[in-house]
Amino acid sequence: MDIMSTFVGLSSVLTGFAQDILAPRLDTTNIKTLYLQSWTENITQETGDAGLVNTILQQYAELQAAGKSDEEIGEQLMNGNNSPAFVLACQKLIFLWYMGAWPDVNAQPGTETGGFTTSSLLSAESYTSGLVWQVMQAHPMGDSNYRYGYWAEQPPALSDFTGN
């Protein structure tokens, strides 16, 4: 499996979206490449740990090769014995896929809100690629491919959006 397939597999487990939604076989936007690059660069820069991204990918690949289900892999990655930096890097990847933006997390444990998060969009395309619009069964604000009056009807099923 090449790094991109591993990345897409990992992303699928974390985001809850099927691989062929994240990276369709005929991929006209190819947003995955931008995300892998941005995730790698940002995590490396923020943690100073040039190996972290590969550690995560490798752990995913191993779990996957061991025949674990997506749920088991997710549990292992996020709630296993991984370091806080490992888990945070995974969470940031989730956020990136959903918003198309890189998050800046200000954790304030113990407060009523637990802190806050700001973020910065990667590109116009990453904005319109955000999974957040899919998970709400809608479309990016400002970029609808639906037709007049669709809003008076029920949307397609959630599973059509997530591919799961």
Partner: peptide, 22 residues
């Protein structure tokens, strides 16, 4: 699988990306 895992864990991420583009 094992092989490719080994392969990319040995390479810096940036290189991997350009490999992908190639």
């Amino acid at each position: 699988m094992k092989n490719s895992t080994l392969l990319f864990s040995a390479l810096p991420a940036a290189l991997l990306l350009s490999a992908c583009n190639t």
